[in-house]
Amino acid sequence: MKNLVEVKNIHKSYLKVGMNFSGTRIQVLNGVTFDIEEGLCVGLIGESGSGKSALSRLILGLDKPDKGQGTIHIQGQPVRQWIKKNPGKISVVFQDFASSVNPMYTIREAISEPLRASGQRGNIDAKIDELLQKVGLFLDAKDRYIHELSGGQIQRICIARAISTNPKFLVLDEAISSLDVSVQTQILDLLQQLQVEMKMTYLFIAHDLQAVSHLCNKILFLYKGEIVEELHSGQLANVQNHYAKKLLGSVIPFEI
C-alpha cells in the first residue's frame, strides 16, 4: 500500500513559558518517525504531555518542526506545500466541539462556511442536506442554532464541516473524548462508515485504548516524545515495549 503521510525524524521544542530570557527549551518531540498508509486508520495513543497535540499540529501544517530537524511529507511533497496545492484535502476534528463552532451560527451557516471558503458555488443548500444526511442529523434542523444542540450533535456538525471539502486525510484529535460512552460508540460507527464511503485516511488521536483498538488498523504509542511501539490493532498481544504493555494491561474492560 502507498504511504500518504511520511513523518521522518521530527524534533520539536518549545521555549519554556515565562523563561524567555534564559532561553531554556522544552523538548516535546524527540525524533518521531512513522508512516500513514493510504486508506488506513492509524491510532495515536499517549498520555497528556507526551506530544500528541504538538505532533498533530505539525502534521496539519499549523506549526513547523525545529529548523533542519525532520520532515513531514504528504504524497511526497512537504506538508505545507501540499496543503497549498490541495486546499481542503486535509481536515481536523477537535475534542472541544463547543468551541470549534461559533455558537451564534445556525447549522446552515456553520456548514456552509467551509464550503464557501473552499470555493464551492452553486447549490450549497443541496450540499448541506447531503452532508447532514451523511452524518445522521435530521434535515429540518438546519435553522437551529449550534448552542441548542447536544454534544453528540455538535460533534456530528464538526464532522460534517470537516468532510464538506471531500478531504483525503482526516485528523481526529481526541474527537470522542468529551462525549458520553454510548454517544462515543455512535460517532465511532459514523466515522467507520464515512471512511469506507469517502475513502479517507484517518489519524485518530485518543487516550481510550478500547476506542482506538475498535476503530484503528494500526496503533502508535507515543511516550516522552518518541514512538515507543507500533502495533496492528488486531495483534495487541505482540506488544514488546514496557510502557505500551503497562498501558494495555491497565485497561479495565467491561465484561459480562
Partner: peptide
C-alpha cells in the same frame, strides 16, 4: 454499546 467496544479490545 460499551460491550461492543470492550469486546473488540
Amino acid at each position: 454499546t460499551r460491550l461492543k467496544m470492550s469486546q473488540s479490545f
